[in-house]
Simulated assay, not measured.
Amino acid sequence: MTMGALGPAIAVLLVLFVFFVGFVARRIEARKGAPAPVPRPAWVSAPSVPAGVRESIDLRQSLRLMSQTHGPTLQGLEIRLDLVLPDEPLRVFAVPEDLQNLLGEIVDMAACMLQGGAALQVLARVDGHHAVINWRDTGDESPCLARAFDGAGGTMASRALSCQAIAARYGARIYAAPSPLGDRSITLRFPIHGPRKTPESGVRL
């Protein structure tokens, strides 16, 4: 091939090379300007606990045990624990140790965040087909326990995520929301396990 014939071929190659370099540069700039991917919280993909290792547990018993185990710690910090339980059972399907770890972690967070003279209110109740525990702290400042669960971050955010991970393994949720205790509460919501009887009619649901 003569030099005259090579000229057009070289020109075409140069055009293609310039086009390729421009394309790569535009891709790099686009990636720089794109927002960073948001990582999924660990609790979102928490694996479910197999049914074979779970037990039918009355949340009232778990909350009484929580009060006996962690009440002295709160009392030593001059934090009052106000626990209100319903007359009817609150049965959930879980591993007892996991449930106690979850409840204990919430109380430990409150012990770290609340000042002396504050109170930790805990209300257990039935809401439709869910067993619900509401938590709210009261004191000189606005309720602070819910801040750890409202997605705003902070020093307690990682512990809140751990609580959410445990709850998610049982199809439960824990989140900040208003409750019968007032604004700035946190709610732990479990599916009720098995039929229940309404106190008004005695009908099993």
Rank of each mutant, 00 (worst) to 15 (best):
R54P: 12
L205T: 07
D127P: 06
R60N: 11
K197V: 04
S56C: 02
V107H: 07
D87N: 14
M113S: 13
F23A: 10
A165H: 10
T138C: 08
T198P: 00
L181K: 00
G52F: 02
A146V: 01
E141T: 01
F23D: 11
A152S: 15
G52Y: 03
I174G: 08
Q75F: 00
A148H: 07
R184F: 06
S48F: 03
P72F: 07
L65C: 01
P96M: 01
A25D: 08
N101K: 04
A119S: 15
R80K: 15
A94Y: 01
C163Q: 09
G202H: 14
S179Y: 09
T198E: 14
R40T: 09
T73F: 03
S56L: 02
N101S: 11
R31V: 03
V84N: 07
G76I: 01
V44E: 11
E141Q: 11
A11T: 10
I192F: 07
G116R: 13
H193R: 07
L6P: 04
S45R: 12
R159S: 15
M1S: 13
A34H: 01
L102S: 02
L120W: 04
A36Q: 12
G52H: 12
A157I: 01
V44C: 10
Q115W: 15
E97V: 13
V15Q: 12
Q100A: 05
S201Q: 09
I79A: 08
V12S: 11
V122E: 06
G4E: 10
A11H: 01
V132P: 05
V49A: 13
R91M: 14
Q61V: 08
P86A: 06
P8G: 06
E55T: 11
V84Y: 00
V203R: 07
D150I: 04
Q61D: 12
A172R: 03
S185H: 06
Y175Q: 04
I192A: 15
N134H: 10
A9D: 06
M66K: 00
R136Q: 08
S158E: 04
I57G: 08
V53H: 05
P8W: 03
H129K: 15
G194L: 02
V18S: 01
L102F: 00
N101W: 01
S185G: 05
Q115T: 05
R204E: 14
E29M: 07
V49P: 05
D108P: 02
D98W: 00
F190A: 02
A34P: 03
Y170W: 07
C163V: 09
R173M: 00
A172Y: 12
K32S: 07
Q68W: 13
D137Q: 09
F19N: 10
A160W: 04
A131F: 03
L85M: 06
R159E: 13
T138Q: 14
K197P: 05
W43I: 03
D87H: 09
K197H: 00
A131W: 02
F23C: 10
C144I: 01
D98M: 01
F190M: 07
L90P: 13
D98V: 00
F17S: 13
A124P: 12
G117S: 04
L16D: 08
R27G: 10
K32I: 14
A168F: 04
P47H: 03
Q121I: 03
L123R: 06
R125E: 06
R60V: 09
